[in-house]
Design a protein around this nucleic acid. Structure first.
Lengths: 232, 232
DNA sequence: TAGATTGTTAATCGATTAACAATC
DNA sequence: TAGATTGTTAATCGATTAACAATC
């Protein structure tokens, strides 16, 4: 497994550095210091240098010039090579509901070379429709679809109840990584990479930080129809 | 500042425990052990107990019965109180593009008492349209909209370039927490809670873990010496 | 050279996990 | 009582940050 001891945090930050370096490159900025890069990414300068140090064993360890900084273009090239951004990636989208369909159209993915090569759903009404240049297939055909399209990464937006079972089928079919939007912890075999994005959880966390707006005695409101109108 | 030394991780897990406990409650399961809860949430049993121990200073420290476990209903009540799930939360959605519109319709939010009370966008074509029972307003009116609706949490789905400026205006208008989908690190004043969800970054992280499909022969992961340094 | 900034080692911080006495 | 499981303290692990010699 490539880069097995590079922490997720480091890889994530390197992706962020790449974003920023691309802007710099577009503006023809020649060099940048770890300090400046750190500020842009909202992290510590030592962190940046430490992150770069992980690339050394990958023989991608160019790096900076003491007293000067990093050559933007060269750094960008190395980081890009490291993360493999240039590689086209084949993605299968599982679940074409509200969230799934939005993700299918999300431009950020295309921009990053993520190619949605298959979509499956369980709703018969959706099967056969075309979305994103791909015909939606039934989830029962998941196995063949994965094999035919050679999808290696899955985006999972099924309901929580079916997520684990579906994930297992994906893995059995050969998928190597899963981005899971269902609010359940997946238990997967070693060697399959997974990340969970739990949107409600994020909001609840924020709500907790905000605190209880008016501790007690606030009249309970019927949660349905708050007149959420915006004046105009 | 409620619970300021409770780690984000703990709060996040407590939300996950709540999810699972609700299922148990619905099935009329009476008690559960930290071990069983841990398995369901994909964490360590000590972790679960440690997480609960953070609630003690909040005088919500019921908790379990040694040798028996936790009463599902009672535990659920306490955790729910702690996180404040029952509170209705007012959310403003900033940016009504592909992702924004999907989030507006996302049922998981409503189910958790998150109420989208306002939507703003910069596209004149969208202004005045109705979505989610709310009339879309122009982002220029952001300040008034926040004040009128008393939104306390913002979901930010603007392009990266405008995210920081918009976030500052949100904070100035009184928003206390921001869920940021734009791929930039926001720099915000103390006391404003923020979380970033960067979808492309998640995918790139997974892509990295999958490895470069074509090539083989990365540095050996066997501890010390990388013997096979491949040529440049 | 003097000033700036790297790459890396060591110190610090915080979160996870193990261990175990308390106790139902 | 014997077995199970809690709540908490201590040990471990890993990630972040500070510090600094190397060096452009």
């Amino acid at each position: 497994m490539p880069g097995y001891d590079v922490p997720d945090e480091t890889v994530g930050r390197i992706v962020a550095y790449i974003d920023y370096l691309e802007q710099l490159a577009a503006r023809n900025v020649a060099t940048i210091s770890s300090q400046a890069l750190a500020e842009a990414a909202g992290v510590n300068a030592a962190q940046v240098r430490k992150d770069f140090s992980y690339l050394v064993p990958f023989r991608l360890g160019y790096f900076g010039t003491p007293g000067v900084g990093y050559e933007v273009k060269r750094l960008l090239f190395h980081l890009t090579q490291f993360v493999g951004v240039t590689q086209e990636r084949r993605v299968i989208l599982v679940g074409y509901g509200q969230l799934g369909s939005a993700l299918a159209r999300y431009r950020g993915f295309v921009a990053r070379n993520f190619n949605i090569v298959a979509i499956v759903d369980s709703d018969p009404g959706k099967i056969g429709k075309r979305a994103n240049n791909v015909v939606i297939a039934h989830v029962d055909a998941l196995d063949e679809v994965v094999k035919e399209t050679k999808a290696e990464i899955a985006i999972l937006t099924t309901p929580a109840a079916s997520a684990q079972a579906t994930a297992e089928r994906l893995v059995a079919a050969g998928v190597k990584a899963i981005l899971n939007f269902a609010p359940v912890a997946l238990s997967l075999p070693e060697g399959v990479a997974a990340r969970q994005v739990d949107l409600s959880r994020e909001l609840q966390l924020l709500a907790f930080r905000v605190g209880r707006p008016s501790e007690e005695g606030e009249p309970a409101k019927s949660q349905g129809a708050t007149s959420g109108r915006v004046s105009e």
